[in-house]
Simulated scan of single mutants.
Amino acid sequence: MNSNLPILPGITGLATAQDIAPKSIAESLLDDRSILEKRLKLQLERPIDEVDNQEIRRLISSLLADFANNDSQLSENTLKALFINWAIFEQWCNDKQVISLPSSSQNFIQFINEKKSLVKMNTLSQYRWAVSKIHLAAGLPSPSHTQKAIDIVTGIRKNKVISSELVDQAQPFREVHCDAIFELWRHDPNPLISRNLAILVTAYETMLRESELARIELSHLTYHEDGRATLLIPFTKSRKSGEPDTTMLSRQCVDTIRKYLSLDVNDSVYLFKKMRRNGKPTSQNQAISRYTIDRVFKQAYDCLSLNRPELLEGISLWSGHSARVGACQDLLSAGYSTLEVQQAGRWTSGQMVFQYGRNILAKESAMAKARWNK
């Protein structure tokens, strides 16, 4: 079998409609993908000397093409991460001169064992997810799902915890930082600075992820007589049912957005327009990228480093996720419950609240309170 099977649209040698035509009543009750998966499974279960390698290649290619053409359940960023992490495994297989698709569980275990000392557990988990996702997309059993592979990954995770490897966390962009940047940038006439300030304040107040922040449309805003506004959030990472969330924007946030929009530089459906560094809008009407949002936070960090360095003590460079972390910590510090913060951040569980606010929550523990005056 070819170890370099493409995994994007444009695959050749695909099964035709005639090839997928049901051959039994049972198959007539299935969709095309299920028929392909059923036939691939039958091929894989044949004795090695009876396997039709050409048919297996064609079935795998057809299943991958189906996945590539019906990937609406995955966001653009998720797809990018999938292919980037799969490419790392595929390159490793090429270097070892072993087949990447389908991969044996033994080869996958060797890959994980070689990578475990080079990357953190989160990255290993991304590798495992990508390898599994591509195999399942191709109608193949995942090499990471054998009991031995599961046990080895579990053991690696345990050893990394014992060795005190901590999960990387974005540096917090807190209210004090947001207010300081607001005072420094609020009167700047540059449209780019005006847009970037609106991005920062909106990111902090809404606790949106980068991709969600970038996708805000002008039509998602409903302005109220008291100067505030409601933001409709039609789609989030944790809510994919089509039922939208909403969040309130403060008067300060609304004023910042209105000032930016009053500069008449936005002809896009999106709230945050793509702009050049000179402050002029681009002709593109696409949503800004997460890299743009990262640059905005870097610009804010550099500005405070120059003007208010005392606010950055113990804090390294921000990223687009920093406002989400900082807002979580501020809400916990203000006395809001873990559940309230979880709801504000639209998390499905309290796990991330505990992760982002572990130092703050430690101060609120029963023992910390009992020994406060000791």
Rank of each mutant, 00 (worst) to 15 (best):
E165S: 08
E165V: 05
V167I: 11
V167H: 11
Q169D: 04
Q169M: 13
Q169F: 03
Q169C: 10
Q169R: 15
A170I: 03
A170Y: 02
Q171V: 07
Q171D: 12
P172Q: 10
R174W: 05
E175V: 09
E175S: 09
V176E: 15
V176G: 06
H177G: 07
H177F: 07
H177W: 00
D179V: 09
D179I: 11
D179L: 14
I181S: 00
I181N: 02
F182A: 13
F182D: 00
E183R: 14
L184G: 06
L184K: 00
W185L: 05
W185K: 00
R186C: 09
R186M: 13
D188W: 01
D188S: 13
P191N: 12
L192H: 09
L192M: 14
L192N: 03
I193H: 10
S194R: 15
S194D: 09
R195M: 12
N196P: 00
A198K: 12
A198I: 11
A198C: 06
I199R: 13
I199P: 01
L200A: 07
V201H: 07
V201M: 08
V201S: 04
T202F: 05
A203I: 11
A203C: 03
Y204I: 03
T206L: 03
M207K: 11
M207E: 04
M207L: 15
L208W: 11
L208N: 06
L208V: 11
R209W: 09
R209K: 06
E210L: 11
E212L: 04
E212I: 10
L213Y: 12
A214R: 00
R215S: 09
L218N: 15
S219N: 13
L221A: 09
L221V: 10
Y223C: 04
H224Q: 15
D226I: 06
D226E: 11
R228P: 02
L231Y: 08
L231N: 10
L231I: 10
L232M: 13
I233M: 05
I233K: 06
I233V: 14
P234S: 02
F235S: 08
T236Y: 03
K237H: 07
S238C: 03
S238G: 05
